[in-house]
Amino acid sequence: MRPLAPIGLFALLALPLPWLTGSGTVLNLATMVLMLATLGQAWNLLGGMAGQFSFGHAAFFGTGAYATAILQIRLGLDAWTGFATAVLAAVAMGALVGFASFRFRLRGSYFALVTLAFAEVARILANSLEITGAGVGLLLPLAPGLDRLQFTDKAGYYWFALVLCTAGLLIAARIRDTRLGARLAAVRENEEAARALGVDAFAVKMQAIVWSAGLAGAVGAFYTQLFLYLDPHIAFGPQVSVEALLGPIVGGTGSIWGPLLGAAVLQLLGEATRALTGGVTGANLVAYGIVLVLIVRFFPDGMIGLGRPRALDARGVSG
């Protein structure tokens, strides 16, 4: 079992940032990195560790985001209860998606696209149901307070995100270092062989998706607390699913630090391309896309994979 010291060190080092910088931009950027890193970590638990690529993490993110918003707005509950419920609701959603897909042995691209379909179904339902406010969406009243998990200061949100990110790292490290991690790796590398060795592939994949969905739901709830407004596109749109997988793949799948590294690289890249391309509309995203392709070209195992042996080459998302 590897020690958890690096994670503790990370949290400790990241803790004082709000005192060190007076810049709202820096703090906001750091908060976004932590938020996306956690969402990426959620994806990584399933996509990286278990090798089950999901294109539909928006389903879990959105479920968490809506759950807390609905509880606070419709039932008047406090944000803490909302947050806990959000995680549970996302877990339930994960269990549902996982059960349906793993029970019927969907793998590779089939699994990826079925998760996408679940997210789309969720988006369309959120667009039609009364409880989600349909297309009008849900707006939480602006009312700072610890019981409502709303902060007047940006630092509050930063620390909130830091807690989530650290929790994600701890979960990932814990899974990696226990038997579950080994079993997931076995399933990822060769599911038939793993089964032959007595691994209950269905059970371990279910565990992975439930952890993954719960963490993604927590990020969704965080998003709700930060921006206070949700609509079906924001919560369940395909761009959420893409953001969930982009970070870990750029950073390095399967590694617990990959999602954080990937999120940081992508956010900084976004800032840099904006700063450098100036006023031509869209030029920043053109540059971003080009650099993305170059990263793949020069860091085939993700940024974190430099110097790591290429063990996973034969693995396929096509099943």
Binding site: V242, L245, G282, A283, V286, V293, D313
Partner: peptide, 27 residues
């Protein structure tokens, strides 16, 4: 060239191409 046939790499490369094309059109 960029993906060398690896599937998660292809995913990113094609996403990158989509981003470039769409925003080239915007520009």
């Amino acid at each position: 060239k960029a993906s060398r046939g690896r599937e998660e790499a292809v995913l990113l490369v094609t996403l990158g191409i989509a981003l470039v094309l769409e925003n080239l059109a915007v520009a």
